[in-house]
Amino acid sequence: MTAPALELRDVRAAYGRIEVVHGVDVVVPRSSVFALLGPNGAGKSTLLKVAGCQMEPTSGCVHIAGVHVNGASPEALARHGVCTVPEGRGVFANLTVTENLRMMTYRNNLRPKDVEERAFARFPRLGERRSQLAGTLSGGEQQMLAMARAVTTEPALLLLDEISMGLAPRIVAELYDLVGQLAAEGIAILLVEQFARTAMAVADFAAVMAQGRIECVGEPADVADAVSGAYFGEVA
């Protein structure tokens, strides 16, 4: 049996003295999509940061493809095929589209031309705006540019943090179509999302997180009730 793409074992994480993740286990099998749902402040993004080695857990283990990676640098992880698209806009606002794409060549020392070709094939709109500063793109275009890294660098594991934030439903739908395609290509994906319905449509597994703990985990249909409870309270 091969090791799962990502395994978090009894992870705790804290900002200073304040613990925000209290012992969480997550297993993302290879070629599957795992959605982490729940209200703001539940600790989802923190957990994703721990998975991407952007943040050191206070205890617990992070295994990627069976390798213990606690303490690795995020840049080393990125070069080895872990692609994190962070919350907010994962683009360099003061760099042009082309220059943003050039930054994606660190993984496997890709050729700039190849990266551009792949990105523009997937997102023709970016091709039209190639010499524009990323900060002047619309929200949807910026998120496409951020997602271009997932498309061009052939990651083994993709970590997505609230890619829908502040975007119109149609754009969100487009982005999730893409997530579905990437999953179909065999990339393992851990995604944090507030739009529960949207995320559950593409997920193989889902977990609901609240107050730094996982309340409920299973196939999307199994956790649907727990989701609505976590967002609107039991009476909603």
Partner: peptide
């Protein structure tokens, strides 16, 4: 600063060091 990857990385780190690391460039 505008034509080489190292130079672009330098400007990228100015913009957002965390994101530069996620791209694989060591800040």
């Amino acid at each position: 600063l505008y034509r080489t990857r190292s130079g672009i990385a330098l400007r990228a780190v100015v913009d957002d060091p965390g994101l530069a690391a996620l791209n694989g460039a060591p800040p």
